[in-house]
């Protein structure tokens, strides 16, 4: 990693920590960052707080902190998986959900909540349904896109898009026949995404999965670079494109499934953050894969903060805010730097 990227990474890490502290303090009850730090310190070290502060402490520690951390984790994960998927399918318009994951997760979650399946898992039943739906969808896409010559990038994209339409149709049918409006709101949640359901209990699995994926991806930087020259050229450089694609497909599917299961399908981050980061630090994946998760995490923390404070107590859909913030930033950067992806 060269100096400029290290500087970027350190600066973004500082911004991320600051953003988490600020976001944990803001909401209907505003708590100063100093107080927030004191509560978090007390929670982590088992320190004492005054009895008149229990309510605010509970708000910070039990409600806001897991939510803000979840936003950071999912933002980081979506950005990293977005980078990987764009390189895998060699398509600038790809995002983590192009593999059919989001609609598959919706079908799984809604199916479970309507049918009452997986009841043995208690409050995690719906998340488990979403995860299984996401993996099932990825598996279907993978099997349908596979050919004797390996998985072709374009075929993967087309299959993913086609499958997404299929799952949407299934969703429509479920909603149409569902006895109540609960199914409709469930569908809305899983397709739009949100962190409203975050608890400490929902954090560990997705945190471990996302961190593990980020660590594993560090080994794939050069392989992803070389894939952009084409499969045959990659092969002539000793990189087996098919096996790289297979491995990373599994990684992307599991990570996306784990994220969708806790937060629904939050669009746009996985599409645009990779591009913004490439504009900032160049195309080399060794650099992009360090910076993109940090940018994704910071962006997601702030987007979530805006979504829950602007029209409180209602929440704006996250996807609407990511797009409102991201589109202008993206267009400005793209025009100023003369960014090229796949040609002029």
């Amino acid at each position: 990693m060269d100096g400029s990227v290290l500087g970027f990474a350190v600066a973004l890490s500082v911004v991320l920590v600051g953003s988490v502290l600020v976001a944990a303090g803001l909401g209907p009850a505003v708590i100063a960052p100093g107080e927030t730090v004191r509560y978090l310190w007390a929670a982590l070290t088992g320190g004492e707080i005054g009895s008149d502060e229990v309510t605010t402490y509970q708000i910070v520690w039990q409600i806001r902190t897991p939510r803000v951390l979840l936003a950071a984790i999912v933002g980081a994960g979506l950005a990293a998986v977005g980078v990987v998927v764009q390189a895998l399918v060699r398509n600038a318009l790809a995002d983590p959900f192009i593999l059919g994951v989001s609609s598959g997760a919706s079908v799984g979650a809604v199916g479970v909540s309507v049918s009452g399946g997986l009841a043995g898992l208690g409050i995690y039943a719906v998340s488990a349904g979403a995860f299984l739906g996401a993996l099932g969808a990825s598996l279907l896409v993978y099997l349908a896109a596979r050919s004797a010559a390996g998985i072709m990038p374009l075929r993967l994209v087309l299959t993913g898009v086609a499958m997404a339409f299929g799952f949407q149709a299934v969703l429509s049918v479920i909603i149409y026949f569902a006895p109540d409006s609960e199914a409709t709101s469930a569908v809305l949640f899983w397709t739009m995404g949100g962190f409203g359901a975050a608890t400490w209990g929902s954090l560990p699995v997705v945190a471990v999965v996302v961190l593990a994926v980020l660590v594993v991806l560090r080994r794939y930087g050069r392989a992803l670079d070389v894939l952009s020259l084409g499969d045959e050229t990659a092969g002539s450089l000793g990189v087996d494109a098919s096996s790289v694609r297979r491995g990373l497909f599994v990684l992307a599917a599991v990570a996306t499934g784990a994220m969708v299961a806790v937060s629904g399908a939050i669009g746009f981050v996985g599409l645009v953050v990779p591009h913004v980061v490439r504009i900032l630090v160049g195309a080399a994946h060794a650099r992009v894969l360090v910076v993109a998760p940090l940018v994704g995490a910071v962006l997601m923390v702030w987007v979530d903060l805006v979504s829950r404070t602007v029209v409180a107590p209602r929440e704006l859909p996250l996807g609407a805010i990511t797009a409102l913030v991201g589109v202008p930033v993206f267009v400005v950067l793209m025009r100023r730097r003369g960014y090229l992806f796949g040609g002029r």
Binding site: A87, R90, D225, S228, L229, G230, D231, E232, T233, S236, R278, G282, A283, A284, Y339, L340, F341, G342, G343
Partner: peptide
């Protein structure tokens, strides 16, 4: 090879 294209802005 005959692949003369590069996807990304390297």
């Amino acid at each position: 090879t005959q692949e003369n294209s590069v996807d990304l802005d390297f």
